[in-house]
Amino acid sequence: MDQVAVDTRWDGVAGIQRYSREVLPRLRTPWTSLGLDGDHLAPLDALRALPTRGLVYSPGYNAFVRARRQLLTLHDLIQLQAPWPGRAKYLAYYALAVRPVVRRTGVVLTVSQTSKAIVEEWLGDDAVRVVNAGIGCSDAFRADAEPASSADPYLLYVGNLRAHKNVPVVLDALALVPDARLRMLLPARERDEARGMAAARGLGDRVELLAGLDDDALARQYRGASATLMPSMLEGFGLPALESIMTGTPVLYWRGCAAVAETADGRGTAVADARDADAWAEAIRSALSRPRRVEPPAAGYDWDATARSIDETIASLA
């Protein structure tokens, strides 16, 4: 087998960073770090020289045009639907870097059946194998987790404020439901923006920003919530939806977001119109007035199984 080198710069607590943190220690394939520094999402990073001629594996979508073969992970193609003019840079990057690397390697990884179908359509190349390696869920997210304490019922949002997350609509809905309370776990850089958004709607005393939560503490927040809000219009998977239902807490989501609908699989309320604050308000009222528990999925979300699928895909490239 070729020497396998991994871009280890995807490291953190959410999204692709979380995926990388969970997957890399579980791989059985012997690998070494590429040892690169700098921002892996910088425009010129794709052009840099690499210290190896062997197979490069990335837990994310950052492509190296000089790599002989690189196994990428396309969690989604949300960037290709970004608003103009920002979309232009992503269209260029995916056309000039990502697609050629994927076609040269002949295989690419993704994380859900929804994303698999999207990636296959985008590639338009039957010679490329798109592998749904799936995704896992920490053992901390379970139905018997101790619920977080709260004097009043609350809703939970875990994510960020990027446009496709559609957060303004649920804040508008919250303003229509007196006394409804929301806890939000956001990146530190977005906390001030969230405070401003809440204050502009008169919600300053009803929105609480969370920080510094490990998996156990986050599981308690999910378990104590009446529902988790997932208003996204686009997702590759929707890990907060999975974490929520694993604790038995239902999800309020837009029915048109295929990846979240796939994950939630009816365990919550599907809102018909993504941008209708009144419809979201009605779903919130129902969740608060008629709280319920949902049955977690019996199986199918296992980080060990995801790592095995990646190992098998790497082996197929030997």
Score class of each variant (00 low, 15 high):
135 I>K: 01
253 Y>C: 08
240 P>E: 07
163 A>W: 14
210 L>I: 09
92 A>F: 12
70 Q>W: 06
164 H>P: 06
224 G>A: 06
23 V>C: 02
209 L>R: 08
254 W>Q: 05
219 A>E: 03
243 E>T: 05
163 A>R: 13
243 E>C: 04
234 L>F: 14
272 A>Q: 12
7 D>F: 05
10 W>N: 09
83 P>G: 10
269 T>R: 13
213 L>M: 09
291 P>Y: 03
18 R>S: 12
41 L>P: 00
69 R>F: 00
250 P>Q: 04
88 A>C: 05
177 V>C: 07
152 D>N: 12
230 M>Y: 13
297 P>A: 11
291 P>C: 04
246 M>G: 00
247 T>G: 05
117 A>R: 15
217 A>H: 01
127 A>M: 00
273 D>I: 00
24 L>K: 05
63 A>M: 10
292 R>A: 13
116 K>A: 14
158 V>H: 02
122 W>F: 08
191 R>E: 15
188 A>R: 15
187 P>R: 12
293 R>D: 09
274 A>R: 14
37 D>R: 14
288 L>H: 08
272 A>L: 06
195 R>G: 00
207 V>G: 04
304 D>N: 13
144 D>Y: 01
132 N>F: 02
140 A>P: 03
265 D>Y: 00
166 N>V: 11
4 V>L: 15
32 T>S: 15
113 Q>F: 00
188 A>W: 10
